[in-house]
Design a protein around this nucleic acid. Structure first.
Lengths: 256, 256
DNA sequence: GCAGCAGTTCGACACTGTCGAACGAGGCCG
DNA sequence: CGGCCTCGTTCGACAGTGTCGAACTGCTGC
């Protein structure tokens, strides 16, 4: 099945598999990793030693953790040709929104079928969630996600949908593919999306797409607790704000 | 000299060497990398192919860039046991400082002899610099850096100083080791540090150390343009603010 | 003190990361 | 239009190394 296997460095694959595992299991140990990854302890040990020596992991007693150098690389990724304009424009506008509304706002970027938290800021009325910088989210379970899907060509949507399992996050999560397609159609027409507790109980979102070219699709969203998610504020004010600012970001991304 | 060579994965070393090079030379090509790293084109090609396939790099035409997954790992690093308390405490306090002063404020963490921008925020009077999330800075050329050195034990200071070349950044950068030691002594006594255009022309800083345990040393700093770097504001107000808030962060880091 | 379990080291084999050479696709210039 | 350079890609072959399981060490707790 693998079409693009060609000549690849297998040990790099296992190195990153280990890194990812260490990242998700903060404080993982040698035996633990060897067990869950199905590799010998000596192999895992050699990798951990190398990565620790280079500073990409660090070790407390016998537990390993991902190190701050990844923050350096992440910052570099955001300053990349493709993303730096989006970063500047989004940062400025999001900070504005936060000042205005006091809520939390963020930009999520589509990257290889997933959404990655690209920049976020919180206001004085902010609600705490698990999502922070770099967190990756599946595209079906959030307002941002569905917004992104709504501006992608149909074949890519299908491709992404078929690769994801539509795991429900709350009782409101849409898990039916047809219903999802329908909703995406609605979003295409009106230009923005709602998330009413589909990912986290008590948390709602309004999101609008940001198109910075065929390869750089993002989404701007404002997050509010359910208690403020009603009335004119949630039905009129926020959608208008979000769609307008999204367009501003698009424009500022083009010419700078 | 190499004491800790043992069994290590060489190909992972070259993989990360390539990643780092791609990160610093945004849009690097195969031949370019092969040239500067002294490796064959085919080797570099195999690595790039692997890393691209895994999503850690992405490719536009024949140019490679670091990808957003590093942001995910970087975010995970910041949420690590060692750093998450510091992150929460620092974020809250820094945002406060920014609201109060309108300047730019940041926390830099010591990581293996370097300083890494851990969190930063800017106010309405902010000044733009090259430094942003994840940027690593040498410890001798900044207020934050010298502050960090001031709370490290002497032997570690000497170790770090001997491993760095004290490259001057502006005409005000301190390059003499003895003078640096002297200044560090001064900082130890009064508890905060100044940077008067030592790293960037026109940019000054006030910084105070944050000690969250022997292994987690950081520094809080406020950045102002030279035109505001004088008088009571710069000589009294900011030092007091910075040292007080640093202590608050220390406390909040301990108990949470 | 002896199990039991952790991380670490060792030795040996098969595998694979490495290289240089050859191939194919553009772009540039004569 | 055609030859030439350059770049990315593929190929084959060898040396090197990533891999494993077994043995070793140090710790903890019965």
């Amino acid at each position: 099945m693998g079409s693009t296997d060609r000549k690849q460095i297998k040990s790099t694959r296992t190195a990153f598999t280990i890194i990812e595992r260490v990242s998700s299991t903060d404080g993982a140990t040698v035996s633990e990793l060897a067990e869950t990854l199905g590799r010998s302890k000596s192999t895992v040990h050699a990798h951990l030693q190398t990565l620790t020596e280079m500073g990409y992991l660090f070790r407390i007693d016998d537990e390993y953790h991902v190190g701050l150098p990844f923050l350096t690389l992440g910052g570099a990724a955001r300053s990349t040709d493709r993303y730096q304009n989006l970063y500047r424009a989004a940062k400025a506008e999001i900070d504005d929104i936060v000042d205005q509304t006091g809520e939390r706002a963020q930009v999520v970027v589509e990257y290889q079928g997933e959404g990655i938290y690209f920049y976020q800021s919180r206001g004085h009325r902010y609600v705490q969630t698990d999502s922070q910088l770099g967190t990756s989210v599946s595209l079906h379970s959030t307002a941002v996600g569905k917004t992104i899907l709504s501006v992608l060509p149909d074949d890519r949507v299908e491709e992404i949908l078929s690769n994801s399992e539509l795991r429900p996050r709350t009782e409101h999560t849409v898990v039916d593919r047809d219903e999802l397609r329908e909703r995406i159609e609605t979003i295409r027409e009106r230009g923005y999306a709602y998330d009413r507790e589909e990912r986290i109980e008590g948390i709602c979102c309004v999101a609008a797409p940001i198109e910075c070219g065929p390869e750089t699709i993002a989404s701007l969203s404002v997050t509010v607790p359910t208690k403020r998610a009603s009335g004119e504020y949630f039905e009129e004010e926020l959608p208008t704000l979000v769609t307008n600012v999204a367009r501003v970001i698009e424009l500022n991304t083009q010419y700078s």
